[in-house]
Amino acid sequence: MNVVKAIAVNTFKEAIRNKILYSLIFFALVMMGVSLVLDQATVGQRNKIIKDMGLASINLFGVMIAIVVGIGLVSKEIEKRTIYTLLAKPVHRAQFLIGKYLGIVLTLGVETLLMTFFFFLLVWLYGGGIDLVLLKAIFLIFIEISVVAAVAILFSTFSTPFLSGMFTFSVYVIGHLTEDLNRIASSSENFALEKLTAFFYYLLPNLENFNIKGEVVYHLPLAPGKILLSASYGLLYIGFLLVSSAAFFQKRDFK
């Protein structure tokens, strides 16, 4: 456990010292840009728009960081040959992977927290008060980007950073379309196609499960247990990804 913790903290330190949190400046700039446009263009509904934009930006930035940092976690250790000394220590490869993963989750958590703070500040400045319901959506966004980071790690255990990035981005896109995939499949006459899409429907993460941005902005009632169920789904899926990653990683040679 100490080993995992040490690796996680080290990974977090790396992200901080490599100035990952500078991306917050861009987040702030985007949000300020949005509010400037709001002043000029829209007549009403300012509150709704600023909430939409804020949640979407937190989501987008989170996904971007999860992919960019996630694909580098393992491959950088290999490329810079730091993995040799690390694995020469009494460290299981699975421990290494889990430590790395927890490190990025910690990084994403801190980043999300800071973005949330800035977002709430802006909403408050625009007279929207402090709307704690928004936190529900942000919590699920955090679960979503944690899933995306785990996808990135999985690919980076057997692929190059560039390809891992492409793959992870594809999974992110398809992850929002699985619902539609399923719909196409169930309306199809082709039995094989139906089975195939059904297979992918369950294999790929259904990231729409983590999207309640619209619901919280309009204060719509959520189905009871929706958040808990979605978060549990995310955690199980992350577990599935990490175990698969560890299996790939265990077999790998580091030349």
């Binding site: 080993v3 730091t82 040799y84 000394t85």
Partner: peptide
């Protein structure tokens, strides 16, 4: 066991003592 790889390249964002501290932690 102790191992030194060929032309080693370490976590360059760490200071010398942080680096050794991290590796020591791996041994508990």
């Amino acid at each position: 066991i102790g191992y030194l790889p060929e032309s080693p390249y370490f976590y360059d964002y760490l200071t010398g003592s942080e680096f050794l501290y991290f590796y020591g932690q791996l041994f508990g």
